[in-house]
Design a binder for these strands. Structure first.
Length: 459
RNA sequence: GCCCCCAUCGUCCAGCGGCCUAGGACGCCUCCCUUUCAAGGAGGUAACACGGGUUCGAAUCCCGUUGGGGGUACCA
């Protein structure tokens, strides 16, 4: 098997799913998965983008076998193959420009596409030309797709496609087909959008006399909200976006495995080793799958909660390291609050706003929360005063703070849920966050009192 | 237009002729727990696109219709 991305930017979610399925199946059957970088489109390719591919695969935890193949290294082979086809009379030169072809079709009232005009005109090699493959007039090409069953294309509807451009560079079909042959690929697992080029590749293989078996499995497409192929127009398609958004690689891989496939026992969240074990290429779905971020985040939350404490802490440090106040992160304080935060995250990106109050001089105030709990709350001043008094002497533990707070809140005729609101906002700046008393314990008496007084002064 | 692919809850996946008054997960709603928010627990909402066959029996097989998608490049 092989994964053959072209380095045109950050790895696409669809590509990530494609490698994953190749990898799962390769590991399941004990096959080999090769990596080939299709870097022949010089205009759009940049060397540093190849690094992005390696980096993404590493992040996902997907490995490959053997040396990486750079398609550009095989240019001579691609050219030789085109010449061979030409020499065998299985391809021919064509000097018609796309405009001329369109014009002829218009005049003749025929269907769009190449009309075979130069098939037997023996165009001179001295003239600017492309090389086209001579598709057989009769018959058809078909294959048994591992996911879809038999698929057949009549030759009569296949036009004589271009093998080599006017500028002399070989087309994708040639490079791709030839490299697959040379690399000994026996199974191609790729997106459904490539179904229509498959008969052409099969035709080229046959023309070259390659009788070796090759199988295909065309994966359903991953679609966006509009039910169309996931593209830049309909959502975040770059794997990197999710990485930056605080999605754990294990969660991403687990979720991706569920797009177009499901384990027979219905257990969705499980170790990758089990997924490899259970994965079956022939049971992959045939219909497009919607990329559901909600479910991705839900799975991500499960993965975060399942993290061992020290592992979670390590990821927290990494997440906070990109904050402007990263220097002020106190490791002990972070470690103390971490257990309270772990069950509250769906993505690691939600972490900073949950713990920033511990590391900033003054809390980052959320205006709406402040207004509701303090400015517009008649009970706020009394509660803050009571808290200042109580917290000045109370034993500094969550339990003591809890009972002390409960006492003055109930004295004010309120429930704890409502009474703690002004205190929470005064101390953390927000109305939601980790449990209040545990947070205060970590913050410390001095800073807590200072923030309560500051808030009281505004009432 | 032509070619190819597809069609079960809003979404993802089960279902492979009787076990289906269609199951699980995410989402959504209700309740419980509760120190906000989560987490956790208990419920609920919600689908076999349609029409013909085949069969004793169809979500499952066949045909058609409709709908969706992909492709139709001297892109990959």
């Amino acid at each position: 098997m092989r994964f053959a991305p072209s380095p045109t930017g950050s790895l696409h979610i669809g590509s990530a799913r494609t490698v994953l399925f190749n990898w799962l199946w390769a590991r399941h059957v004990g096959g080999e998965l090769l990596l080939r970088i299709e870097d022949t489109d010089r205009e759009r390719n940049q060397p540093e983008l190849i690094e992005v591919i390696y980096d993404s695969l590493e992040w996902l935890g997907i490995d490959y076998d053997g040396e990486v193949v750079l398609q550009s290294d095989n240019a001579a082979r691609h050219h030789a193959v085109v010449e061979e086809l030409l020499a065998k009379g299985l391809a021919y030169r064509c000097d018609s420009t796309p405009e001329e072809i369109a014009e002829r079709n218009k005049v003749a009232g025929g269907p769009p596409g190449y009309d075979g005009y130069n098939r037997d005109r023996d165009v001179s090699a001295a003239v600017p030309h492309v090389v086209r493959f001579r598709v057989p007039d009769d018959g058809s090409t078909s294959w048994v797709d591992l996911i879809r069953g038999e698929i057949t294309f009549e030759h009569s509807i296949l036009e004589d496609f271009v093998l080599r451009r006017r500028d002399g560079s070989p087309m994708f079909i040639v490079a791709n087909a030839v490299d697959d042959i040379d690399m000994g690929i026996t199974l191609v697992i790729r997106g459904e959008d490539l179904i229509s080029v498959t008969p052409k590749m099969l035709l080229v293989r046959r023309a070259l006399g390659i009788g070796e078996p090759i199988e295909f499995a065309h994966l359903p497409l991953i679609v966006g909200a509009d039910r169309k192929k996931l593209s830049k127009r309909n959502g975040d398609v770059a794997l990197d976006n999710y990485r930056e958004a605080g999605i754990l690689p294990e969660a991403m891989v687990n979720y991706l495995a569920l797009l177009g496939w499901g384990p027979p026992d219905g257990v969705e969240i499980r170790p990758i080793t089990e997924i490899i074990d259970l994965f079956e290429i022939s049971s992959v779905n045939q219909a497009g799958a919607f990329f559901d971020i909600k479910k991705l985040e839900s799975i991500n939350g499960e993965y975060i909660r399942a993290l061992p404490a020290d592992d979670f802490l390590t990821r927290c440090r990494a997440e906070l390291s990109t904050q402007p106040w990263a220097q002020r992160v106190d490791d002990d304080a972070l470690a103390a609050i971490a257990p309270e935060v772990q069950t509250r995250l769906r993505t690691m990106r939600e972490l900073p706003t949950m713990v920033d109050f511990l590391f900033l001089d003054a809390p980052d105030i959320d205006g709406a929360s402040w207004a509701k709990a303090i400015s517009d709350n008649d009970a706020a001043s009394g509660l803050l005063d009571a808290a200042i008094v109580a917290y000045s002497t109370v034993d500094w533990s969550a339990e003591s703070l809890h009972s002390a707070t409960l006492a003055f809140v109930e004295a004010a005729g309120l429930k704890l849920g409502k009474g703690q609101a002004p205190i929470r906002v005064a101390v953390t700046g927000r109305s939601v966050g980790p449990p209040l008393f545990e947070s205060i314990v970590v913050l410390g008496r001095e800073r807590t009192l200072a923030r309560l007084s500051a808030a009281r002064a505004t009432c």
